[in-house]
Design a binder for these strands. Structure first.
Lengths: 218, 218
DNA sequence: CGTACCTTTGAGACCCGTCAAGAGAGGTGG
DNA sequence: CCACCTCTCTTGACGGGTCTCAAAGGTACG
């Protein structure tokens, strides 16, 4: 959970500067491009990314995930500073947003801030079971928003390690807790594929707390 | 930690609408005023406030504190939505920021976002000892920023309960951990007065983790 | 079919939460 | 001025959620 696997390659700027139009960044090199022009907005046209903060002893906290369609701008979209680089989770393609000023980013910034607030609530006051339920539900909603209509199965290129580092848990405990969610028929995540069960039940777990003991209260 | 003591009175709007210029809000009633005009910015001229999110079973998470001089705008300054009301910690005075649009708030919004990111790191990956060190240091820095120069003693109208609900801990454990910080000569907080010791040492605790056992590693 | 990586499971330990009781500080009224 | 009350902080004992260490089971890939 502490070292970056080969698949977590920082977004590259070695493919050349981001030209107006688009740019591809698959692997290597952290996304200096947007740090280079903080006033320019980019859109994550394809792929997933995340911003992470490392403590000196190796602990890692994933502050936020960026999904396809999200606006990307280091200072604006992460709870970020120099210490929070942006990593590509999959191959990634960025497109510049033409003729946009700081103001145009405001809605995206506020949305991101709301998510950070929710994450603070999760990390501060929710159990592992509730955190994972809340997170998977959020991912589902964000993915739905990109297409419209609520789906049931999604492609989610996240490994347990990412959930752990995002939710302040250990990989082992994420595994155990995901098993409970699965046993309760609420959600599963296996090899890049997420499946959501009863949304209402998931939301209830998020807001009221869920029965930790497996298969619901006897 | 779960019910709001009498001193945590939601910011009032019963003293009349916020007129251009200023408005006073001491107690009672949550700050509807700013929700009423989301495009208007206000400045916390005097007093402390905080935004908190409640879970249905009573758990409370204080998302952010607002210090004198901070800009106040419900959607912009908190990781906030309908579920995150703003409470006055002390008597509070708000002043409208004249002739300001959404753009003028952007720097404050970004600063707030950076703080949320730091809080996520604390809640997700830092121990109680580290969290409290990081938090007290942050408060000191924000208070310094308002005057300039680093002080040593500050007036901080926070009780352990507020630290606990902000840092995702129990009041009891905050008490125990503050004792360790005090024993190590790093920081103390007693009846509205905060004292900070060696900032460098505090920052080291925040970044590298501190010796949990009292009085440093033997 | 062997290697590498991820996930799962078990056992034991630790950090932190809960319950409970006691100690100080302020405020109020007699 | 002191008894009494309330609120907050403190301290101890105990339990539980989560972490760490360790090893085994799957799955992909060469």
């Amino acid at each position: 959970m502490t070292d970056l696997p080969v698949t977590d390659r920082p977004v590259s700027h070695t493919h050349g500067r981001l030209a107006a139009g688009y740019s591809v960044a698959c692997e290597a090199g952290r996304d200096i491009a947007q740090a280079g022009d903080p006033n320019q907005l980019y859109r994550l046209a394809d792929g997933w990314a995340f911003g992470a903060h490392m403590l000196e002893d190796g602990r890692r906290q994933i502050v936020s995930f960026l999904l396809p369609g999200d606006l990307v701008n280091a200072p604006a979209v992460l709870g970020c500073r120099e210490a929070t680089p942006l990593y590509a989770l999959t191959d990634v393609r960025l497109e510049a947003e033409h003729g946009s000023g700081p103001t145009d980013a405001l809605p995206a910034v506020l949305a991101q801030m709301a998510r950070l607030g929710e994450q603070v609530v999760s990390l501060g006051r929710r159990t592992a079971y509730e955190r994972i339920a809340a997170f998977l539900l959020q991912i589902g909603e964000r993915l739905d928003g990109a297409v419209g209509g609520a789906g049931q199965r999604y492609l989610v290129p996240l490994r347990l390690e990412h959930l752990a580092d995002h939710l302040g848990l250990s990989v082992v405990h994420v595994s155990r807790t995901m098993r409970q969610l699965r046993d309760n028929g609420l959600a599963s995540l296996y090899r890049g594929e997420m499946e959501l069960g009863d949304r209402t039940a998931l939301a209830r777990v998020r807001e009221c707390g869920g029965p930790k003991p497996a298969t619901a209260p006897n």
